[in-house]
Design a protein around this nucleic acid. Structure first.
Length: 182
DNA sequence: AATTCGTCCAACCGCGATTAC
DNA sequence: GGTAATCGCGGTTGGACGAAT
């Protein structure tokens, strides 16, 4: 079985790697707006198809060559998926995490461990990658037992601990526990 | 002003799970 | 049922950038 860590298409074709350019972002957004984001490999396949179509057209329109070729998305589906999820999705919040969000992450981590995608599911507008980065860069270093964290971060204006000494509401806690057990 | 160091974050890699043929 | 392709996740890396020297 071929290792799929790096898609076979990435070996067969000379696909781009590294940082995304604004043009590539625009191309990906356009594609997803048009075709949706259910099948990530279609991004590449359709982009390739478009390239073929475009090639036929530009054979007669040489002056359009530069623009049309540059519009091809030479990325594998996996890379496109990641870019969309972590950066281009319209519902992303971006910006710094609030104290409330940090507390929630810490508490969810106690229940879920390194299940970043499940933690991210409890934080609308945040990605698993963002949360993972936050954890690895700051929270992990200063991580203390939850009781100490609560003492340190107590903010009377916004958050009241519930009866369990937790900032998680019961609904969220139940959801987290259910996910952890399943 | 130049260099080194540390931090942050976007993106890649490898793997397991799932789906398609 | 077996194999290949695809998806999604978590771990890790590398580069950009600011702070310190």
């Amino acid at each position: 079985m071929v290792s799929v860590g790096r898609h076979s298409c990435c070996y067969k074709q000379k696909l781009r790697k590294g940082l995304w350019s604004p043009e590539e972002d625009e191309k990906l957004i356009k594609h997803i707006t048009k075709f949706g984001h259910g099948c990530w490999n279609s991004v590449l396949k359709l982009a390739s198809f478009n390239s073929l179509l475009i090639s036929a057209i530009i054979a007669h329109l040489p002056h359009l060559l530069t623009f049309l070729v540059s519009s091809g998305l030479e990325r594998c589906g996996k890379s496109c998926r990641l870019r969309w999820i972590n950066y281009l999705r319209p519902d992303l919040k971006r910006g710094t995490f609030s104290q409330q969000e940090e507390k929630l992450i810490i508490e969810l981590h106690v229940v879920l461990g390194n299940k970043w995608s499940q933690i991210a599911a409890q934080l609308p507008g945040r990605t698993d990658n963002e949360i993972k980065n936050l954890w690895n860069s700051s929270i992990k270093i200063h991580h203390k037992p939850l009781s100490e964290v609560n003492d340190d971060r107590k903010d009377p204006s916004s958050n009241e601990k519930n009866s369990q000494g937790s900032y998680l509401d019961e609904k969220t806690k139940k959801a987290a526990a259910a996910m952890a057990s399943s």
